[in-house]
Design a protein around this nucleic acid. Structure first.
Lengths: 255, 255
DNA sequence: ATAATTTTGTACTAAATCGCACAAAATTAG
DNA sequence: CTAATTTTGTGCGATTTAGTACAAAATTAT
C-alpha cells in the first residue's frame, strides 16, 4: 500500500495552488493510504483547503504505520510498558530501531500511540452499540451487547486472554509517566460520559426506573467492566465472564 | 528488636529436650520477635511441642524483615514490579543487595512476599468488618465500612494515591510471571469466597431481598472495588471515591 | 580464647537496554 | 542525469541492571 502525505497550513494565507508560501508553518501532516486522488479527496472532505497532497519525497516507508502500532500494542499488552524492550518491539514489528524512533518517537510515545489505537477501536465499536435507539432494544440487551464486545476484546486473539490493556498496563505506569496518567484519566472520563449519557437518555425515555441514578448505574457498569478486565488477565474463561454478566445484569435490570 | 528463631521438627521423634535427633529434617523455621520466653510461648501456643527456640547464631540481622517488606512494597506499589530496580530496593530498605537476596530471594520472590504482606493486612482488616453479626448493622452500613477501608488503602500514605496494589502492579506482570499470576488468582478467589459467604449469610438472615443473588451481589461489590482501585491511581480524590460509594450502595441496598 | 556460623558491605561481571551516528538505499524534483 | 530528500539498517557507546564473590564484622558454642 502506497501512502500519500498531506501538508496542511494556515488558512491565513489562502493559496490553493498547492505551493506553501515561505514563512508559513506546516500545521499538520496526514498519512493517507491509497491513490493520490483518494488522498486529495480525504483532504477535501476534511475541509483543508490549503493543503498539498503528494507522494512523499525520499525513500518510501517500508512499513504500514497502523500495522506497526497494532503489533507494538500486542507486545505492550502482553508484557507491559516497562518490561517491553525496544528489541522486543523491533522484533515484533519488523521495523528497525532508528525507523521506529523516526516514525513514532521514543518508547513512551510509541506506547501512547498504540494505546490510542486500542482506544479508538473500542470507541468505534461502542459507538455502534451504545445508543438508546428505543423500540426493540431493552437497556439490558444493549448492555449485554456492550459486555459481549468487551469480553471479546479481553479474551480475544492471544492464546491466553490479556484482559483490559488500560488497566493491565497503563495503571502500572501512571505514577511514573505523566503522559500515561493523562491518557488514563482521559479514557476514564470518556467512559463516564459515555455511560452517564446513555443512562440519562434511557431514563428520559422511560427504559429504566426513575429511582435508578444514571451516575450510579454508570459506575456499576464500569466497575463490572473493570472486574471483567481483571479476571480475564487472571485467566478466567470467556464462559465464566459471560456468566458474570448474566448474573449482574439480571440483578440490575431484571432477569 | 532482637529476633529468635524456632526450629520445628517432626512429631515422629518425641523429644522435648530441645535437641534435634540426627537424621530428622527441620520442617520449618519461624522468626519470632521479642524475648526468648515470648518466642517460646509463641511456639507453645502453636502447639509445636518438638521445637527448639534460641537466639540465632552468627551475626544478627541489622533489619526487621517486616519493615523491609513494607518499604519494598511501597516502591513496588509506586513504580510497579518491572520498573523497580534492585538499586531502588536497596535505597528504600537500607538493606544492601546481598542481604536482600539472602533474606528474601530474588526480586520476584521479594515482590511476592511484599504483596502477601499487603494482602494479609487487608485480609485482617476485612475480617474485622465483614461479618453479618446481625442486630444494629445493615448490609449497607457494613458494605460502606468495607469501602471506607478500601478507600483508605487506595488513597492513604503517599502524596499521590496509589490505588490497588494488585490491580496496579500484579495485573501487569501476570502473563510473564507464573508465580504472580497464581498469587493474583488466589487473591481473586479469596475475595469471591469472602463476599459470596457474606451475602449468602446476609440473605439467610433476611437482610437482603431473596431475589438478590449472592454471587451477583458479590461481583458488583468486587467490581466497584476494582473501579475505586483504578480511579484512585488515576488521581481521583477521596471525596470523589466516597461519592461513588454512596451512590452505588444506595442503588444496590436502598438509600 | 578459639572455632563455627551468619550477616554485612564493597566491588565486580556479564548481560541487557536506550537512544543515536552514519553510510547506503530508494525515491522525487529539476 | 544530478541534486535533494527521506527511510533503512548496521553497529556502537554509555548506562543500567540482576545477581554474586569475597573478605570483614558480629555473634553463639565450646
Amino acid at each position: 500500500m502506497v501512502h500519500y502525505r498531506a501538508e496542511v497550513w494556515s488558512k491565513a494565507s489562502p493559496q490553493s495552488d498547492g505551493i506553501k508560501p515561505d514563512g508559513i508553518e506546516v500545521e499538520a501532516e496526514l498519512e493517507l493510504p491509497g491513490t493520490a486522488e483518494c488522498a486529495g479527496k480525504a483532504v477535501d472532505d476534511a475541509a483543508c483547503a490549503y493543503a498539498r497532497v503528494s507522494r512523499a519525497r525520499g525513500r518510501p516507508r517500508a512499513y504500514d504505520p497502523g500495522e506497526v502500532l497494532d503489533k507494538a500494542l500486542k507486545v505492550f499488552w502482553q508484557k507491559g510498558f516497562a518490561a517491553t524492550s525496544l528489541d522486543d518491539l523491533v522484533e515484533a514489528t519488523g521495523v528497525n530501531r532508528p525507523s521506529l524512533y523516526a516514525g513514532f518517537g521514543d518508547k513512551e510515545s510509541l506506547y501512547l500511540k498504540a494505546m490510542q489505537r486500542y482506544r479508538a477501536r473500542t470507541d468505534s465499536q461502542l459507538d455502534a452499540v451504545l445508543t438508546c435507539s428505543g423500540q426493540n432494544d431493552t437497556v439490558r440487551s444493549i448492555i449485554r451487547r456492550y459486555f459481549d464486545i468487551m469480553i471479546d476484546t479481553y479474551t480475544g486473539e492471544a492464546e491466553h486472554p490479556l484482559g483490559c490493556a488500560f488497566m493491565c498496563t497503563a495503571l502500572n505506569e501512571a505514577p511514573q509517566h505523566e503522559s500515561i496518567l493523562e491518557m488514563l484519566q482521559n479514557t476514564i472520563d470518556q467512559f463516564d460520559i459515555r455511560f452517564e449519557t446513555f443512562f440519562a437518555q434511557a431514563r428520559d425515555m422511560g427504559f429504566i426506573r426513575a429511582d435508578q441514578d444514571p451516575k450510579a448505574l454508570s459506575q456499576m457498569i464500569i466497575g463490572l467492566t473493570a472486574n471483567l478486565g481483571v479476571r480475564a488477565r487472571a485467566g478466567a474463561s470467556r464462559e465464566t465472564l459471560q456468566d458474570m454478566v448474566r448474573g449482574t445484569t439480571a440483578l440490575l435490570f431484571g432477569a
